[in-house]
Amino acid sequence: MLSYIIRRLLLLPIILIGVTFLIFSAFSLLSPMERLANYITNPGALKNPQMAERLITKYHLDDPFPLGYVHWIEKLIKGDLGWSQSANQPVWEAISQRFPATLELVLYSIIPVILVGIWLGVISAVHHNDMLDQTIRVTAIIGWSLPTFIFGLFVLFIFYGILGWLPPGRLSVWAQDIVYTGVNFKSYTHLVTIDALLNGNIPIFLDALRHLIAPIITLSYISWAGLLRITRSSMLETLRKDYVRTARAKGVDEHTVIHLHAQKNAMIPVMTMAGMMIIGMLGGVVITETVFTYPGLGFWAASSAQQLDYGSVISFALLFAVAMVVGNLIVDISYALIDPRVRLE
């Protein structure tokens, strides 16, 4: 297994070069004048056409593609990801400032995805075709069908607009004063809920949690709905297997049959999909974060793409690619651990 892991990790740089090369190529299709749009939002700021040329030279927008790419790689090796025009700060700083917020959102979203998805999937399969199964399936189909931004706005409207419980953003004003200014609050992990607990500050923990619930519901709904469907299918298939029938015939109680014999085996494909879905959530945060004004990577990535801020887009892609490769590797390993028949060669 170790050699498999090493081989997969060795592939990482090649994948990253491929991803960055592709994005860089795509941006190089734009003319320098088009790329200048990232720097100029008001043509009135350009006093004359020569100024546009000056800016193109200043920001190296006319560098030939190979030269530009090589320069970017050189800087990357030195740990310099460049400047994010859309975030108005160095790319690395933009990532490190926003990544913890996204990580916190995704980590908490995993809980309902796994627990609710699998739990409802099993219930649905056990109550195959009865009222409960139908209800759960309809709920899942709604989850699959609803665009995230519609569902997000719906959640925001109900839980904030009407009930006033779950506000947007990451923290309330009073909590921001404490957390952002660092007075009597130390950030260890930059995950506010964890830091609040480490600081023994329960009101901030509750406040951060309160801000997380609505984006978690939005982000996880689609994923758990998907996982539910897979769990249900897998469970139905497993429940029809001979060994399950044998267990029942032997008089094993239904709870043990379902949860010990069937569910464990049904989980093998589910685990694979769950891993992929969790990684995919990184992409899903874009809309959720925008709707809830949640200051994470997703919102920044979207605005970077709109502004043709290739330095930021390429760095986000780099991060996403690393997460994909590492995430897949973890899925493969866990697959082998769950199913002893699988051997990673």
Binding site: S31, E34, R35, A37, I40
Partner: peptide
């Protein structure tokens, strides 16, 4: 797109 518009504007 804004970028395409700006390009055409700057190129008169």
């Amino acid at each position: 797109q804004w970028s395409a518009y700006l390009k055409l504007y700057l190129a008169s």
